[in-house]
Design a protein around this nucleic acid. Sequence first.
RNA 1: GCGGGUGUAGCUCAGUUGGUUAGAGCGCUGGCCUGUCACGCCAGAGGCCGCGGGUUCGAGUCCCGUCACUCGCGCCA
Length: 606
Amino acid sequence: MHAYRTHNCNELRSDNVGETVRLSGWVHRKRDHGGLLFIDLRDHFGLTQCVIEPENKHFAVLERLRVESVITVSGKLVDRLADAKNKNLPTGDIELVVADLEVQSRAEELPLPVFGEPDYPEDIRLKYRYLDLRRQKLHNNIILRGQVINSIRTRMIAQGFNEFQTPILTASSPEGARDFLVPSRLNPGKFYALPQAPQQFKQLLMVSGFDKYFQIAPCFRDEDARADRSPGEFYQLDMEMSFATQEDVFAAIEPVMAGVFEEFAAHTGKTRKVTQTPFPRIAYKDSMLKYGNDKPDLRIDIICSDVSEFFIEDGVEFKAFQGIVKGGGTVRAIPAPNTKDKPRSFFDKMNGWAQREMQAPGLGYIRFEQGENGLEGKGPIAKFFPADVLVRMAAHAGIGDGDALFFAAGKEVDAVKLTGAARAEIGRQLDMIDEDVFKFCWIVDFPMFEWDEDNKKIDFSHNPFSMPQGGMEILQSADTDVKKLDILAYQYDIVCNGIELSSGAIRNHRPDIMYKAFAMAGYDRDAVDSEFSGMITAFKYGAPPHGGIAPGIDRMVMLLAGADNIREVIVFPMNGSAQDLMMNAPAEVPAKALRELHLRLDLPKE
RNA sequence: GCGGGUGUAGCUCAGUUGGUUAGAGCGCUGGCCUGUCACGCCAGAGGCCGCGGGUUCGAGUCCCGUCACUCGCGCCA
């Protein structure tokens, strides 16, 4: 007989009754009847009930043993009495009568219970992550993650993509997020940077002629955490393809995304519908107008609109918003459908939410109801509008009897931001979000440049390596800032349920266009040559047109697992302050280590 | 760096308008229990009410500050 087990804890059935078997696992739960002791034995695969009688010499040991101790038990498998069967357990028809017991590992009193999976403070869960990982929910999430990655890999390879590994110790990139730096012992005063993404490497692989690249790529960015952003490191399905148009990239990645989501849609036990390919495409500009951001949650059936014009019509007396519009600002309308029966407090709460959560001046609103003379506006600010203006505004916003409009006013960036947040909040408050669908879309036609308010200059709005739509001609003809800001890039995002899963682009593979684009953003030729020397040089020796995308794997798994926090799908995550509480990282290092690296600490005074 | 929320037993939480000895459930320890599967019953231990200051005859409760966690903003090519 095997030293530890003849079966796992989810294997034995009635057919095995009469066999002498051996199981190993953790003591999940004990039910001590004094004269009879039940043990639920757990391993990765499941649970099997074991029973021991007081005559057995091991009874006293088992009775004293704490839960989560690891044991090996052997004995005869028996049928349970008819009324003692447990229908909730796959192994519920049988039980193991313990004859022999070996205690493999005694558990002390636990800082975190496994059984029952009660809510526990996250710092304790993170410190004792291995205990948390024994819990079924988290255990299943991590298994799901492995299966998702395997599915992705299979699908990419089937499409002719080749998998690569790119360096972890590499060069700092002057664009983007803050880098993690690694000092070089052999090169005093110099530093490696951990890659924020294998961006340049994958483009260089296209220059190398590999045609189709992918990697389950670790990415490192020194940025603050969010619910859907783990600090430090995360994984992308990084892919790139040669001689590809934007539509080719979409056609390659859409079936992978839709396929993986369909494959695991039932993971939570519910049936969840996935957007059919091709996914809808929404221009960046339209998304900002209709949804208030570039990552719309399409589960919320609310479309916003610009209503600035109505506030400066003759006869409108609403001075606050009038001033905003005349001063170059914007008023956006966010419909709140079917709110006829909502109490006044609903609207007041939304206003309070805007002030508290968004630090906005507030959210005005008008309720619309069908009256004797047609659609009428109600609410504190309705009286400032002539009746016909309200009717036309309602038509413009696409709402009618029983609906309301909230107003977000201010500078355009602020109004848009409040619009997006308010749309999501209304969706939540009105229970408009269907948890059982995955609604995908593409956001396309991102602007190439944006106005950098801090430095009062034009800068790249996303990836400086994107190809402008219109190529060299459009760059050369853009002789004013306004024209420059109108230039679009072959830059796109894939969004699911309001979560940005990835961004990608058709790259700029032409050195002449690259120099020109960088010049427009204020970087001279020398800066490009020094900061992107590897890539710009490579492009001078024959570079194929190419493009790609990099969906975030953690976020995909999060959606599939139904997790509301990214730490629920990462096996050993750091906390919000970028600390690993289990391994004690980051940590101080011995002075010798610093000397070898030619470093001296200059810590902030306390 | 900024804003919101939370902070009472190991954990989840209750704690009235400021009032005398701060409670419950789970867990833990001990005892009882031969068919449980959230086993049951009895008993017990366990509290810097996050920390510091203030108001008050009196603070878990009110005020100020601070720390921790968390969500968001900034940031995230």
